[in-house]
Design a protein around this nucleic acid. Sequence first.
DNA 1: AGACGATGCGGAC
DNA 2: TCCGCCTCGTCTT
Length: 276
Amino acid sequence: MPEGDTIHRLAHRMGKDLVGRTLTALSVQGVGVVPELAGASVEGVEARGKHLLVHFEPGWSLRVHLGMKGRWRRTPAVPGRGRYAASPASVQITAGPVAWTCAGAYQAELIRTRHLSTHPRLSRLGPDLLAPSPDIAAMVRRASFPGYRHRAVATCIMDQTVASGLGNVYKSEVLFLEGIHPALPVHALAEGALAKVFDTAHRLMRDSVSRRRRETVPLVLRPSPNSPRLWVYRREGDPCLRCRRAVVRIVQEGRSTYFCPSCQPEDPPQADRKKE
DNA sequence: AGACGATGCGGAC
DNA sequence: TCCGCCTCGTCTT
C-alpha cells in the first residue's frame, strides 16, 4: 500500500540493511551497467513523499516510484539463482547477505546525485508530510494558489505538488477526523482548517511508520480484534464508528472518497460562506 | 476460473 | 475529467 508512510517505513528498514555496505550487484530495468557502481557503497536510503531514494558513494542515486502495483521484498542473496528471475525485477540491490528486489515499479532510474535537486519529479513535490516537522504553512500556501482554491479539498490534499506523501487512504481518514466534507472547495474551509488537516495527516502517517501498521482508529475504540482499523476508508454502507450512520462513497476525479454524511456535513456552521 | 477493484500517475480529450 | 496501465489480492460464480 504505497503511500508516504509505506515508503518511509521501507526506507528505514532498507537503510538498516544496506547503509555502509558494499554493493555486490545492482540491476535496474532499462538501465545498462554503470561501471562506476561496481563495488560502490550505500551511503543512505531516503524517502521523499512517495519516492524512494538510495544514494551510492560515487555520486549516483537510485530513484524508485512504486505507483500502485510496485512492491519491494527483502530476500536472501543467492548468487546466480534469483528467486524472482522469472518475472523480471524492476530493481535488485544485492549487498552482503541480503537482496532487496522490487517488482512492478512505476518508475526506476539511476541519476547523478547532484542532479536530484533539479529532477523534474522531485523538484515539484510539496513539503513532505513525514518530515520531522513539516512545513505546514508552505502546504497551505500551495493549496491557496489561484486555480487550486476552487478544487475540492479531497483532491487538493492528494496533489503531490501541494504536500507530498498523502494518498487515497489518508485522504478519506484525515477529512473524517477533521469533520470536513470532501467535496468542499478549499476556499470554503474555515480559517486554519487546512493547517489542521495537514497536521493530522502528519501525525497519522508518522504513527503508521512507528507502529509498522496503518491504523487510524485508536486501539481503545476497537472492541474486538476484528473491529475496523480505519474510520471510513473502504467502509461504504457500514456504520460510522462514531454515529452509526452509513458511510458513503463518492468518486472524485476517478478516485474513491469515503466519508460520513453526519460527521462531515456539507454546510458546516463554522465555514466562511461568503459568495464569490 | 473469472471478474472486479486498488494504494498512483500521467497523457489524452 | 477520464482512462489506461497488464499487477495482484479478494470476492463471486
